[in-house]
Write a protein that binds this DNA or RNA. Structure first.
Length: 320
DNA sequence: TTGTGTTTTATTGCCTCC
DNA sequence: GGAGGCAATAAAACACAA
């Protein structure tokens, strides 16, 4: 016995139906609940019959029960009914009307004060304990459903955030690919212009001074180093400024910051994908790819005249 | 009819509040 | 310490496919 609680579900005073129905009619107060008692003069509910001795119950007007459930074998004659009532300790389900009554009461308030409990018990012809148990189980079911709802909401929120995150990741990868591509292009161009310069030098040097060995002594790497300093800085700056476009996600403190994510509940559901390289490593990589390039200060960039070949990716353009 | 999964009713043990 | 709530669980009732 838990907590000194007394479970006397099988006894409870052996109340008779006549008393129960008398109480029910006298005390049924609430209007919606009244509507459940509109079956002519007959009582709506079976009365106290769960886990009680049915000898007492049947001694009253037990043969006159219009609200027996269908499973009560109402068509099967007296013998089965007799057997049924000689199973005193079996679980009995509440009738549909009883459940409806309880449901309506639960809608009003899912907590059960002692007065309401005894009132409901009287109205329904149940033990107060049964009413309490029903409410308890009903609260448990409600809680389960509520959890399911909460889960669905969270799931939807997660899906939405995940979609945003995936888009940003895709965008980031595309930008990365563009950086690599553009870097290659620039290097290639520089290389070509360097060799042109070299051939010009060769021509000039060949004419007045016949010294091909001097020209050959300049290695390719040196050409690149020399020429790259003179590379068109505005082109590079446009690349760089476009790469770090304000709409694009960017890193500042090691996290992805984007208008999309920052606008909403920034609980940082997603940690930024751990890049193959750390931010420092990525910076170093950029430096190694564009080593001697001198990027202009942001204030020196003229944004009024964007480069013809915008390096902005399609995603960025779509966002605008 | 029977096996199996689900729902409903009830019990138990623990916890909190007064 | 009693009353009542809750979680976990048992077990009966029920639904349903094979």
């Amino acid at each position: 016995m838990a907590g000194g609680r007394v479970f006397n579900s099988a006894s409870s005073g052996g109340s008779s139906l006549s008393v129960l129905f008398h109480n029910q009619k006298a005390s049924c107060a609430s209007e919606p609940l009244d509507s459940l008692f509109l079956s002519g003069s007959s009582p709506s509910f079976l009365g106290s019959r769960s886990m009680v001795s049915f000898e007492d119950v049947r001694g009253g007007n037990g043969s006159n029960r219009p609200f027996f459930r269908s499973y009560d074998h109402e068509d099967n004659g007296d013998d089965e009914l007799e057997d049924y009532f000689h199973q005193p300790e079996k679980k009995r389900r509440l009738t549909v009307d009883q459940v409806q009554f309880l449901e309506k009461s639960f809608e009003v308030d899912n907590k059960l004060e002692p007065e309401r409990k005894s009132q409901l018990a009287k109205d329904l012809g149940l033990q107060p304990r049964q009413v309490a148990i029903w409410f308890q189980n009903r609260r448990a079911r409600w809680k389960t459903k509520q959890l399911e709802k909460d889960y669905e909401v969270l799931q939807a929120s997660y899906d939405s955030l995940k979609a945003d995150y995936d888009n940003l990741l895709k965008e980031k990868n595309e930008l990365k690919a563009e950086v690599v591509l553009l870097t290659d292009k620039v290097l290639l161009r520089d290389k070509e212009s360097g060799s042109l310069e070299l051939s010009d030098t060769n021509k000039k040097s060949q004419e007045p001074v016949q010294n091909p060995a001097a020209a050959e002594s300049v290695s390719e790497g040196e050409v690149s180093k020399v020429s790259i300093v003179g590379c068109k800085q505005e082109e590079i700056s446009s690349v760089k400024s476009d790469i770090f476009d304000s709409d694009s996600p960017h890193y500042t403190d090691g996290r992805v910051h984007s208008p999309l994510l920052d606008a909403g509940d920034s609980s940082h559901v997603f940690e930024p994908e751990q890049s193959d390289l750390s931010q420092d490593e990525e910076d170093n990589l950029s430096k190694s790819l564009l080593p001697p390039y001198i990027f202009p200060k942001l204030e020196d960039i003229d944004y009024s005249d964007p480069p013809e070949n915008s390096y902005r990716c399609k995603l960025c353009k779509q966002k605008q």
